[in-house]
Amino acid sequence: MNTFKTYGDRAKSHSNACARSLLELMERKQTNLSVAVDVTKKAELLSIANAVGPYVCVLKTHIDIVDDFDQDLVEQLEQLAKTHDFMIFEDRKFADIGNTVKHQYGNGIYKIASWSHITNAHTVPGEGIIQGLKDVGLPLGRGLLLLAEMSSKGALTKGDYTTESVAMARRHQDFVFGFIAQQQMNQTDDEDFIVMTPGVGLDVKGDGLGQQYRTPHQVIVDSGCDVIIVGRGVYGNPDQVQQQSARYRDAGWAAYLERCQQHKA
Rank of each mutant, 00 (worst) to 15 (best):
I118T: 09
K93M: 00
D64Q: 10
H14C: 15
R171K: 14
A95W: 02
R259Q: 11
Q242L: 09
A81K: 04
G128R: 05
K29W: 01
V35P: 06
Q244P: 03
T3Y: 02
I229T: 09
D91S: 03
A113Y: 08
M185R: 14
H122Q: 04
V241Y: 13
I112W: 08
V200E: 08
M150E: 01
K41T: 10
N120W: 11
T100M: 02
T40D: 14
T61E: 03
S223M: 15
G252V: 07
S245F: 08
L22P: 15
N107M: 13
A255C: 06
A17Q: 13
V124M: 14
A246P: 01
I109D: 10
M196C: 12
A121C: 07
L23P: 15
L33I: 09
L45M: 10
G201V: 12
L80Q: 15
E164N: 12
Q211K: 05
L144Q: 05
L23E: 11
Q131G: 04
A251L: 12
Q173H: 09
K12F: 10
Y110W: 01
S116K: 03
G8A: 11
Q76T: 05
Y235H: 15
F86C: 05
N32F: 11
I63A: 11
Q211G: 01
E78K: 12
A113K: 04
G108I: 05
E27N: 11
F4S: 02
V200R: 04
V227Y: 15
F94P: 00
N2S: 07
D135N: 02
A17W: 07
G236R: 10
M87K: 12
C18P: 07
L33C: 05
V58L: 13
R214I: 08
Q211Y: 06
Q244W: 11
R92P: 00
G178T: 10
V52A: 13
E191T: 02
R10H: 10
D222E: 15
M87S: 02
M185Q: 15
